[in-house]
Amino acid sequence: MSEQRDHSPVEGNEDFASFEQTLNLLPAQKLREMLQSVMKNDVNAKRHVLKWLKTHSDGLSPAQKTRIDDELLWEYWEKVEPIIAKFNELGGGPERREEQVYEWLEKITELVQKGTLSTTGKIDFIDEAFYEYDKQNSGFEDKLMEIFFSMCTIREEWESLVDHLQERPSDWRNKLTMDIWKDQLHEDEKYVALRQKYLKYGLDYWDLASFYIGKGDVNNAVVVAEKGLIKGEGRIDELGDFLKDHYQRQGDALNLERINQIINTRNRPRPHPTMPGHRKTVKPVKKKRRS
């Protein structure tokens, strides 16, 4: 059996050396034309070129680096968007495809964290990706929202995200909007107005009370906390602890006792229908008339 010749382009191989020499002899215009042709015919070529440029960007200007990152962002999204669209259509998909989505979304996350994306690039991406996010049927919504939040760093970007959130308001989207207004944009009036419309749980009241505490407005914090202690559903621990600490500092024994009584009443278990002392309601039985 004859020995098979190795044609792989190993460095030192005469064919490879000849190929390198040919490339070196090509004028810059021909190299550009060749590169454009390769990228046109290979869907992955542009991404590889951009990644190479990113790792060899020492001589590039900040604007050029930003341009590379913006282009890479779209290369990654073009890989993942069709899969997410299919998941939205079917309400899920194969585990293998799901893993691919998370791999590409993780690349986008890394690019956001380490890159220099432009504001225009970020806003355009949020506009595009929100189309799939709004369908709410792929299972990737949490990861996408995590990316949106990590992208935003300046007012214009945060405002763009709020606009999308408020296009289809929901309890969750309102919460995200309030967080942005309170923590990122410092739109206090907008935050308070929306927060006061959504005070249902103890933690909702605590969110507003802690906002007032942060502003040094203890009086309003106490008012909100007292309302939440009585009306708030679910967890009220933070409200109770704040009020007890407040009245203790004030040396107000009467109000401290009142707060403790409210807490004890709220924490008292409701009697079970089978427990002794629970009066069971018996419906009166109607007597049948004799015919």
Rank of each mutant, 00 (worst) to 15 (best):
M1Q: 07
M1I: 04
E3K: 09
E3F: 10
D6H: 02
E11S: 06
G12W: 09
G12T: 03
G12Y: 05
D15E: 08
F16R: 05
A17T: 08
A17W: 01
F19A: 14
N24R: 02
L26D: 01
L26Q: 06
P27R: 03
K30F: 08
R32S: 13
E33L: 10
N41E: 15
D42M: 04
D42G: 13
D42C: 14
K46V: 08
V49K: 06
K51S: 12
W52P: 02
L53G: 13
L60V: 11
R67A: 15
D70A: 09
L72F: 05
E78N: 15
K79G: 04
K79Y: 07
V80L: 03
P82E: 07
I83C: 07
F87M: 05
Y102R: 12
W104C: 08
T109V: 04
Q113L: 14
K114S: 15
T116Q: 12
L117V: 06
T120E: 09
G121W: 02
G121R: 07
G121L: 11
K122T: 10
K122Y: 07
I126T: 12
I126F: 06
I126G: 03
A129M: 12
A129R: 06
F130Q: 07
D134H: 06
Q136S: 13
S138R: 11
F140A: 13
D142Y: 06
D142A: 11
K143N: 14
I147F: 14
I147H: 09
F148R: 05
M151F: 14
C152A: 15
C152E: 08
T153D: 14
E157C: 07
W158K: 00
L161C: 01
L161N: 02
S170G: 02
D171C: 08
K175M: 13
I180N: 09
K182N: 14
D183Y: 03
H186T: 04
Y191A: 07
V192W: 03
L194A: 04
R195H: 01
R195P: 00
Q196Y: 04
Q196C: 02
L199D: 01
Y201R: 12
L203K: 06
L208E: 00
G214Y: 07
D217I: 02
N219H: 02
N219V: 14
A221Y: 10
A225H: 05
E226N: 03
E226K: 12
G228P: 10
K231A: 07
G232A: 08
I236W: 00
L239Q: 14
G251F: 06
N255M: 13
I262L: 07
I263V: 15
N264M: 05
T265S: 13
N267I: 00
R270D: 03
T274S: 12
T274Q: 15
M275C: 03
P276Q: 09
H278F: 15
T281H: 13
V282G: 00
P284L: 09
K286M: 04
R290S: 08
R290Y: 12
S291Q: 08
S291E: 11
